[in-house]
Design a protein around this nucleic acid. Structure first.
Lengths: 350, 350
DNA sequence: ATGCATTTTGCATTCGAAGTCAAAACTGCC
DNA sequence: GGCAGTTTTGACTTCGAATGCAAAATGCAT
């Protein structure tokens, strides 16, 4: 730097502390009377720097309030230390996002958030993802084959959260939706339930399909055919509406209603109790899926499957960062079981 | 570029398409037989580029799948097109984050998410914020005077969401917490309630203090002194516990309980109905604050204040981006009224 | 003190896009 | 065709930090 300012005495390089602009490594170097390289090395763990040098630099760093520019660093290292998190609808994933964010932060990685409202937004979102040079992506959204392929071409690790692809080698962490539903069905059938309603989520939701198919499959395996279907959008209101539909379609209310998530199960219970005058669980058993906070509220106390959110998030984060460090790692699918929660929203003996 | 490769024929510059790495503007330039500057200009709206040139470049852009590197762009333009969003506890702000994210995305701005668990994390978080050269920050968290000052020094616009500082010139959007509470108090008193319980949030929560003081102040103004206080942490469980405390502290249950948020109000109702055998609203009126989704569920149907989340988010986003474009804009505080929701959780005539 | 090995330091270059400026290519007009 | 005026283009530099390499400084043994 000292050399440079001799050969090219430009103002911007000479100004002692270019106030207004944050200090750069050159500013620190000049202030400490050392080279810019030295400053840089002081911020690289395990670099060869004498104690004397480090102390001197750090003094200037504090004096100028220097913070390394992560953007500039990212340019040269080709590592932004940012990961993209793509969520289709935040409303249903607040705790997931909290867990992911917490864990990434602990590891010094930052989260660039992409929320998408419609599937059609995915393509646009991915363009942004490429532009921002994220080191990896966690997707709790649906991507098509070409989009997944794009990640491979660009060597950007991708981990799916709660959705996977049987026919493609992707990395994913999932809660075993189908197994969970089977547990619920078994529990209900073992406790004498014979006729069922099933409230599925949106048709384009991977999770909903898995859950609904899981429940349906087990019921059929057990030879149960009294099944009425309806679908909702994972919301409270849609759960209520779906129950109305089911009731209208049948002579008698079913023994139990299996909902694709807790929110709809809660809607269902409220509809039954407050609008249809049905006792839950006395006349109607209701079960959900997720283990959301509200499922434990005394008014509902759902029988449901609790997703191990912490484990899922931890797995997603570590699998992603492992692949960032070592791009040759092959895809891996991890499937976690959910825990059966024995609430009081269904007629079961415990 | 052509010139450069003559004088310094390095491999990395000569390789036609350095596969594996994403294409750069140089790659595009070489492929199209034009200069790198030309490629850059094609991505700058309103730049001087002939139609012939633009077509030619765009053909190569598509052929190579080129995406401008936002990191490199940010370095030279000093604009990252990223804003930081700092939220203290995501659990209570999912819809806020959704709204903010949606609106920033619409305007081509990206969200770098910072979640903090303890106040002590703020300092560390801010270091990260500086490093990532965000263009601005929305904070739904508490910052101290020095931390706010740091934003001014670095010329990084800052907008507070639902917290403000009477004694400092900060930019903020808030729902008028105190006014909302006064509306609730007036409603309850007008409907004959005489004794009150107040469940506040954490002592270090700005919002909680505003709300609690608002309610307390109005009650005292109205000459009502039968007030029992308790505090919680904004959670369902803490609402239940707080109601227990209140009941224990008094001979008779109060006529009404005023909770600092909906979640605690719901906990309160469940505790009253399912554990204390109190009829709500018959024996106990319960009111909340927020207008959360669950406040409208039939089982609760809260009397509460609905925060205009869309307006708040829109205001925060536009105020922030206005200040990014025009740093000379002075601080501005915007205060939105909340809407009274006439639910059935309190004994009121409607 | 000398020589050699090792650590520490600085110089120069690099990452990828944007912007400045001057050269080159057009345009219109006489 | 030639010339002034305008538009388009390319060469070069810049942003801020990291790093390979060589020079300088240090340590150590003789």
């Amino acid at each position: 730097m000292a050399n440079k300012s001799q050969s090219k005495p430009k103002l911007s390089n000479v100004t002692p502390i270019d106030s207004g602009r944050p200090a750069t490594s050159y500013d620190v170097a000049r202030h400490a009377g050392v080279s810019q390289s030295a400053v840089s090395r002081c911020f690289k763990p395990g670099a060869s720097v004498s104690k004397k040098m480090r102390d001197r630099v750090m003094k200037s760093v504090k004096a100028l309030g220097y913070q390394p520019n992560a953007i500039a660093r990212g340019l040269i290292t080709r590592r932004s230390n940012m990961v993209g998190v793509i969520v289709s609808n935040l409303m249903f994933y607040p705790e997931v996002l909290t867990e992911l964010s917490k864990r990434f932060t602990e590891r010094g990685v930052h989260v660039l958030l992409f929320t998408i409202e419609h599937d059609s937004d995915v393509a646009r979102t991915l363009d942004q993802v490429w532009q921002y040079q994220v080191d990896g992506v966690v997707a709790a959204a649906w991507l098509d084959k070409d989009q997944i392929e794009a990640f491979n071409e660009r060597n950007v690790p991708l981990v799916f959260y709660n959705r996977s692809f049987d026919d493609m080698p992707v990395t994913s962490v999932c809660c075993d939706q189908a197994e969970g539903e089977r547990k619920l069905v078994d529990l209900l059938v073992d406790n004498g339930h014979q006729s069922f309603g099933i409230i599925s989520g949106p048709k384009d939701s991977f999770v909903s399909v898995e859950r609904t198919q899981g429940a349906l499959g087990r019921l059929q395996d057990l030879g149960i055919n009294e099944i009425t279907m309806a679908s909702g959008h994972y919301t409270y209101e849609s759960g209520r509406r779906a129950l109305q539909e089911i009731i209208q379609q049948t002579e008698e209310p079913p023994d139990a209603v299996i909902c694709a998530n807790d929110m709809m199960a809660i809607g269902c219970m409220d509809e039954a109790r407050h609008h249809l005058n049905l006792d839950v669980p006395g006349q109607l058993s209701v079960v959900g899926f997720d283990g959301s906070r509200s499922s434990t509220w005394s008014g509902y106390d759902l029988v449901t499957i609790q997703q191990p959110v912490e484990s899922l998030a931890e797995a997603a984060v570590s699998m992603l960062l492992d692949r960032v460090d070592n791009p040759t790692l092959l895809p891996e699918k991890r499937l976690f079981s959910g825990a059966l929660r024995m609430g009081t929203s269904a007629r079961i003996k415990r």
